[in-house]
Amino acid sequence: MDDRELADLLERFGLSEKVIDTYLTLLELGEAKASQIADAAGVSKRYVYSVSQELEERGFVEVNDHVVPTTIRPLPPAEVVESLSESVESMRPALEARYTETAPDEERFEVIKSRVTVLKRIAELVDRAESEVTLSLPYDVLDEVADELRAARDRGILISLVVSGVEPHEDLSLDGLASLVRVWHEPMPTMLTVDSRIGLVAPGEMVARSNSESQAIVFAQPHLGPVIVGSFFGNYWPMAAEAYTTEPDSLPATYHNFRHAVLQATLCDRAGIELTVTAHGQMVHTDGPTELSGRIVDIRQGLLEPANNSFPVENTLVVETDDGTYSIGGPGAFVEDFEAEYVEFAPIS
């Protein structure tokens, strides 16, 4: 660290540039008389006396005025650092007493008035996805975010996409954009969720037309994301027609997103591939094992037609184990027997 960097750090503790220069001069001289320090630092002797009192109060130096002339000695760096640390730590109770927790910028709402900005935010948020994206978008603007969708699929992200404003029988070239694509000829709101915690909602006309006076909202709330996901799969997904479905993944495979696991289990079942699953998590209603292993004997889901779940966001694996048959759900499961944090699939040979 050079002198400039050291000076910048000392400024953070309330020392002026002139005081810092005098102190750094004293560090080089060691114990010295005020006149010596004044000559070396290019300041007056009176100024040195004034500064030395301030530095002594802050724990940087020791002033020996019991001798004539008075000498000033810099304290060892370890003592100075300890003194500064104690001063900083002493602020903690007062700061904590006055601190009001607020959400970081990412967890606040953002109002968007521009169609261009809406599409830019969608692309940015899809690019940040770690496990899952749900998205409804007019077909006419799909190209605006196509690169980000393809990149997310390449990262293994589960993408459920509803394309609106086109007929299901049209040749739409949707391969590679999503895991699942449905098409609806009616206009619908633009809805995006990323990892069930960050998302965007915009009126349909705002994205379809550049001169709309409507506004969109970007949110990052862990409790709001699942509500939007539920609306997406409960209100819009069933109304749209299947247009594209991905192929089963290579096995064995591990899934930390439970909806992704249910989709893959369903694809394997329809391809005639029997699976064993090891689920890691906890029992929902009773104490019990933190791991369940067995053969998948039933799947309840609404991602693929025909749906057989009893409510829109139900995604359940029914597993036959050595100790009996159990139903497995994902994080937040409440109707199933077991809540899985992640699952491992392997084919039954």
Results as ranks from 00 to 15, higher is better:
residue 134 T to E: 04
residue 161 L to I: 01
residue 189 P to W: 00
residue 91 M to L: 15
residue 99 Y to F: 15
residue 171 D to L: 12
residue 184 W to C: 05
residue 164 S to R: 09
residue 96 E to K: 11
residue 147 D to V: 12
residue 184 W to T: 09
residue 141 V to A: 07
residue 185 H to W: 15
residue 146 A to S: 13
residue 95 L to K: 08
residue 157 I to T: 03
residue 161 L to T: 04
residue 151 A to Y: 07
residue 157 I to L: 05
residue 128 R to N: 09
residue 102 T to H: 10
residue 124 E to M: 02
residue 165 G to L: 06
residue 117 T to Y: 12
residue 144 E to R: 14
residue 149 L to G: 02
residue 138 P to L: 08
residue 149 L to P: 01
residue 179 S to F: 03
residue 185 H to F: 11
residue 118 V to E: 07
residue 145 V to G: 03
residue 123 A to P: 00
residue 100 T to F: 12
residue 132 E to D: 12
residue 160 S to Q: 12
residue 178 A to C: 04
residue 100 T to Y: 12
residue 100 T to L: 13
residue 140 D to N: 09
residue 137 L to F: 01
residue 131 S to A: 14
residue 106 E to S: 14
residue 137 L to A: 00
residue 181 V to W: 05
residue 132 E to C: 06
residue 114 S to I: 07
residue 126 V to H: 00
residue 147 D to M: 06
residue 119 L to Y: 03
residue 165 G to F: 09
residue 152 A to S: 08
residue 158 L to S: 05
residue 151 A to G: 03
residue 188 M to G: 13
residue 129 A to D: 01
residue 139 Y to S: 04
residue 190 T to H: 02
residue 133 V to H: 03
residue 158 L to V: 04
residue 168 P to K: 02
residue 117 T to M: 13
residue 148 E to C: 00
residue 113 K to G: 11
residue 145 V to D: 00
residue 182 R to M: 08
residue 157 I to C: 05
residue 115 R to W: 06
residue 159 I to R: 04
residue 100 T to E: 15
residue 111 V to S: 05
residue 136 S to F: 05
residue 96 E to Q: 13
residue 178 A to S: 10
residue 139 Y to D: 06
residue 113 K to Q: 13
residue 179 S to T: 10
residue 140 D to H: 12
residue 186 E to M: 12
residue 163 V to M: 04
residue 160 S to Y: 07
residue 140 D to E: 15
residue 185 H to S: 15
residue 163 V to E: 05
residue 179 S to Q: 05
residue 161 L to P: 00
residue 91 M to S: 10
residue 145 V to K: 01
residue 183 V to Q: 01
residue 175 D to K: 13
residue 178 A to I: 03
residue 174 L to T: 02
residue 189 P to N: 00
residue 145 V to L: 04
residue 91 M to W: 14
residue 112 I to H: 07
residue 165 G to C: 08
residue 135 L to A: 02
residue 122 I to P: 02
residue 108 R to T: 15
residue 163 V to P: 01
residue 187 P to S: 03
residue 165 G to S: 08
residue 170 E to S: 10
residue 114 S to A: 07
residue 146 A to C: 02
residue 120 K to C: 06
residue 105 D to V: 14
residue 92 R to V: 15
residue 160 S to V: 14
residue 118 V to A: 08
residue 161 L to G: 00
residue 176 G to D: 08
